[in-house]
Each structure stands twice: as structure tokens, then as C-alpha cells.
Design a protein around this nucleic acid. Structure first.
Length: 518
RNA sequence: GCGGUGGUAACUCAGUUGGUAGAGUGUCAGCCUUCCAAGCUGAAUGUCGCGAGUUCGAAUCUCGUCCGCCGCUCCA
């Protein structure tokens, strides 16, 4: 059922020009997609909704568009060089994949557990007279376990540091590590997976290796002082950015949910240390309000992180119920001063703020909100693509496919339709109306097929309004305006159409909703 | 990467024991039509994922390869 819905969604996106597989004539490229004529409109509208909600609506948030290429040390400072590397190994019998370092660490834990068990047994045997420290230092069996654990730990650390995959494999073989479920020791070679794409810049010395940014956030951090000084912002203030990021995912799956090239909409909010939880909670609510303005509340939820990333002291996801279950749409993280401090340390540049109220310098704490633009796109499509039954001309049941998208996000705002194609007066008049409306918003003119079919075509791409030019138009300059969801029509003066459609498709309506929800 | 499964028109799919490809929808042109898809006439569109092999002959059988989907794994 859900799977069918997802398949339908993917076909619909292709068929109506929202999303195409990338490089399709060359059989496609895994995990990469292109946005088609309707897709780019919708995506731009989502971005604009976000931008205005963040930048326009907050006088202390400014925008930024930093480059994708950045100094390689940035990724050292951010922790990506170390944390974005995974050594993976497959078990040939069970066909399961494991992180090699995790396997070895589990084995180390087992050794330590064995030593502890020996100590425990001895403690029982000797009773009150037991000297644990002495026993640990002298008992040959305990010593063997602990020394081995330490040796392996050291070797693991060295191998990880040196990216020595062969040695990781050697450790697995020497320790005779088995697959947890099947006990198989039939392992493949250990392979390194680096989640960052790299490329080459010819004249930077060394080997000129550069990474394609795996997140947009760092562009904001390294510009923190530039922005703060040139915009005369005081803490708290935020910097917002929309841009592409790249991750070499081991597997990119689920359509545009996990792509190797994707777009993020991120805002970093710089706050006084100690106030971060207060802002974290405020931003949780604000961001949820932003989502709720365009998505039914029951399809959204918060999900706290079980494991915090290396930089965070609090983290929550806003999840959306996709056809394949509740999944992350946006992350809200309290990143502490990890990034600014780290860049300060590595670059040698002080990245602090002088707080005139406290009369002191400090490194600001950061609360981050980060939405996946493509995931937003997918969520918008998946909660608005509807197949419904409506009466046809004879009053019989007929089905229609309609994209019940928020009018402000719709790719095309208004379609202009002459009632009949073979009446020159209607066609001419319709052209006139179209030529006026095109100054206000994206419109489509369509005269092909019966008007009912044209309505359905517009429904399929989510056009909120259809204006039809009929014989009465020729007499009194009025048209019918048909609303997508209700299919109700109203007769209005041509001179009013632009105002009506603009009013109802203006982002302002959404922004006002969010403001009320705060 | 491994396993499962699939790849035929823009979309959804059919294609018999091997005989040079079809349907529905869509698209285009024309007709009809005074407001909610599926009225009439006509047309275009496929290297049957790609390559090789078997065969007189391959969408169909065999091998290889590429790509998709699902699972394992990963997911700031």
C-alpha cells in the first residue's frame, strides 16, 4: 500500500517534470537526480519560504552564500576528516557488513570482561582479604587478558590513524573475530569509506586535494567574524545559508531522500554561553511551526538523538512520516562552541565576541537548524499527492490526481484557459488575460482538449487556480476562477484576477501563520 | 560490497514452445465540444539496458556487463 504510493509518487514526479534520474540517457547515476521544470519551481518556492521565514522575519538573522570549495584544514577542524571515515568489512557467509573498528572494539571489551570475571571469581574465593589491585597486577591470566586488550587497543588506534586497512584485517584474523550471529570467520578485506568527496585544485601546493563540502555549516562558522563585524550584529544573532553539500554515501537510496549531492538550508544562531538550551528550545518550536504551516501536524514529530555527535550537547530531529516511515527532515543541534573554538585553534585567529553588557569576550555557543531541502521537497510531494473520487460531467464517479500543495509553493500559480479552442474570440481574449497575468506570477496558457481535462492536468501539477474565459467574458470582462481543492468556481472581473491569485498564493500567508504560532 | 529481484514507448505494463514488438494512458495534428479526465479521425515515438555467444532466426536461451529497487551496512 505505502510502497505503491511511493512508486506512484516517483512516476508522477517523472511524468510531470518534477524529478528525472540524472544522466538518464547514459543509464543514470546512482543517488543523483535532476529537478525538472516543475521541480525547480517547487524547490525554489520551498527555499524562498525558508529564506523569508528565517532572514526576512528576523532582524538579527542575515544571509550568506559561501563557496563550496573551502580550505582543507576546515574539515580537519570540523572533525570531518577523522569522523567521516569508516573502515568496513563484510562477512562472506552471513553477507552482513560491519565497521571493522567496531568489531575490534567489541573484541577488546570481551577481553576486559574476561579479566573482570577472573577478578570477580577471585574476590569471591578470597573474601574480605582480597586485594583487587594486587591481584590485577600479578595474576597471570588477568594480566594476559588486560595486556592483550591494551595492545590491541593501541594497534587499532595506530591503524586507524595511519589508515592501515590491511592491519585492521590482520587484527580481525589474529583475534579470530567471529560474526556475532553465525560465528563465521570468513571476512572480506577491510575497505575504507570516506564520506567526503575530494577533488583537485591545481596550484595550492602539496597535492592540492580539496573536499567538496559535506555540510554548509562550516562556511558560516568561518565567516562568523566577517558577518558580525560588517552587519554590526550583537549576540544573539544568526546566519542563514542555502546551498549544495556532498556526501559519498555508501548507498544512496529512497529516491531523493538520501542523495550524494543535496541541498541544505541551514541557520547557525550564535548565543551567549549558558543560554544555549533556552534558544535550542525556542528554535525547536519555531522550526516546528514552520513545518506545520505546510504539513499536517500528525505527520510530524520530534525525535531526540540517542547518540550525540562529537560537537553537540543536545540534538533533536524533526521527523516526517514519509511513505517509508518517519524519517529525519530537519536537525536542530546545540553545537556548543565546538566549531568556533576548533577553527580558532587551528587557524590561530581569535573567533570571539565582545559582549558589551557583560563587558567580556567569549566564544559564542551555537544553536543550529538544518533542513534537507530535497527532503522537504519529498515531504511536500508525498503529503499532497492525492488520488480522489469526484463526480464527472454526468455525475458519475471519476478519479482525479491532484497535488494539494500549499498555494504559495505551487510551481504554477494560475492557468488561463479559453473555454473552447475553435472560437477565435475566446482564444484571443484568453491570450490577453495571460499576457497581463504573466507579470505577476508563473502562469500557463492551455487550449488543448476539453476544459475538464485541462483542469485535471493543472490539478496534477498542483496549480491552485484556473481562470476560464467563456462567452460571458466577451460581454462583461468577467471570468470564472476555479479553485483546485474545492473545484468551486466563482465569477470575477478580469481586473481582479491578479489581486485574488496573488493574495492567496502569497508566502505572506504562511509567514503570518508561523508568527501566530510563536 | 554481498544477497534477493528487476530493466520492453513519456507513464503503467503484456509479449505463448525462439519466428524482426503490442495494449492502456499520455503526446502531437485535425474535427467536435457553452465548465470538470477516458467523443471521432489521423500521426509520431522503441538500438526490447548494453555487449558477446548459441541459432537459419533472440525481447525470449547462455555468459558477461551496466543500471534500478529491496535487505544487510552507513546515515552530523
Amino acid at each position: 500500500m505505502q510502497e505503491d504510493l511511493f512508486k506512484r509518487l516517483v512516476s508522477h514526479c517523472k511524468e510531470y517534470g518534477f524529478i528525472y534520474p540524472s544522466s538518464e540517457v547514459y543509464d543514470g547515476l546512482n543517488g543523483v537526480y535532476d529537478y525538472g521544470p516543475m521541480g525547480v519551481e517547487l524547490k525554489n518556492n520551498i527555499k524562498e519560504y525558508w529564506w523569508r521565514a528565517m532572514v526576512q522575519m528576523h532582524e538579527n538573522i542575515t544571509g550568506l552564500d559561501s563557496a563550496i570549495f573551502m580550505h582543507p584544514l576546515i574539515w580537519k577542524a570540523s572533525g570531518h576528516v577523522d569522523a567521516f571515515n569508516d573502515p568496513l568489512v563484510d562477512n562472506k557467509d552471513s553477507k552482513k557488513r560491519f565497521r571493522a573498528d567496531v568489531l575490534i572494539e567489541t573484541e577488546i571489551d570481551k577481553l576486559i570482561a574476561k579479566a573482570d570475571k577472573e577478578v570477580e571469581k577471585a574476590a569471591k574465593r578470597f573474601g574480605d582479604a582480597f586485594d583487587e589491585k594486587m591481584y590485577r597486577e600479578t595474576n597471570p591470566r588477568v594480566l594476559e587478558y588486560t595486556q592483550k586488550a591494551e595492545a590491541v587497543e593501541k594497534r587499532l588506534a595506530n591503524a586507524m590513524k595511519a589508515n592501515d586497512m590491511a592491519d585492521l584485517k590482520a587484527i580481525i584474523d589474529e583475534l579470530e573475530i567471529t560474526e556475532p550471529d553465525t560465528g563465521s570467520r570468513n571476512w572480506t578485506e577491510v575497505r575504507q569509506f570516506n564520506l567526503m568527496f575530494s577533488t583537485q585544485m591545481s596550484n595550492t601546493g602539496d597535492d592540492g586535494k580539496l573536499y567538496l563540502r559535506p555540510e554548509t555549516a562550516q562556511g558560516i562558522f568561518v565567516n562568523f567574524l566577517n558577518v558580525q563585524k560588517t552587519t554590526r550584529q550583537k549576540i544573539p544573532f544568526g546566519i542563514a545559508q542555502i546551498g549544495k553539500a556532498f556526501r559519498n554515501e555508501i548507498v544512496a537510496r529512497q529516491f531523493i531522500f538520501r542523495m550524494r549531492e543535496f541541498e541544505q538550508m541551514e541557520m547557525q544562531y550564535f548565543v551567549r554561553p549558558g543560554t544555549e538550551m533556552e534558544w535550542y528550545n525556542k528554535w525547536k518550536e519555531r522550526r516546528m511551526a514552520w513545518h506545520r504551516a505546510i504539513t499536517p501536524a500528525e505527520k510530524l514529530r520530534f525525535k531526540d538523538h540517542d547518540n550525540l555527535a562529537h560537537y553537540a550537547n543536545a540534538a533533536v530531529d524533526i521527523q516526517f512520516e514519509f511513505p517509508f516511515g518517519f524519517k529525519e527532515l530537519e536537525g536542530i543541534h546545540s553545537r556548543t562552541d565546538f566549531d568556533l573554538s576548533s577553527h580558532s585553534q587551528l587557524s590561530g585567529k581569535k573567533m570571539q565576541f565582545f559582549d558589551p553588557e557583560l563587558n567580556e569576550h567569549y566564544t559564542p555557543y551555537v544553536v543550529e537548524t538544518s533542513v534537507g531541502c530535497d527532503r522537504m521537497f519529498l515531504s511536500v510531494i508525498s503529503n499532497s499527492l492525492i488520488e480522489e473520487t469526484v463526480p464527472d460531467a454526468q455525475g458519475e464517479d471519476s478519479s482525479r490526481t491532484v497535488l494539494k500543495i500549499a498555494p504559495a509553493l505551487a510551481p504554477v500559480k494560475c492557468a488561463v484557459l479559453p473555454l473552447l479552442k475553435n472560437k477565435e474570440e475566446l482564444v484571443g481574449k484568453a491570450r490577453e488575460v495571460y499576457d497581463k497575468l504573466k507579470f505577476h506570477f508563473l502562469c500557463q496558457y492551455d487550449e488543448k482538449d476539453a476544459v475538464g481535462r485541462r483542469y485535471r492536468r493543472q490539478d496534477a501539477i498542483g496549480t491552485p487556480y484556473c481562470v476560464t474565459i467563456d462567452f460571458e467574458t466577451l460581454e462583461n470582462d468577467t471570468v470564472t476562477i476555479r479553485e483546485r481543492d474545492s473545484m468551486q468556481q466563482e465569477r470575477v472581473a478580469i481586473s481582479e484576477v491578479a489581486r485574488i491569485v496573488a493574495e492567496k498564493t502569497d508566502l505572506r500567508k504562511l509567514l503570518e501563520q508561523i508568527d501566530v504560532a510563536l
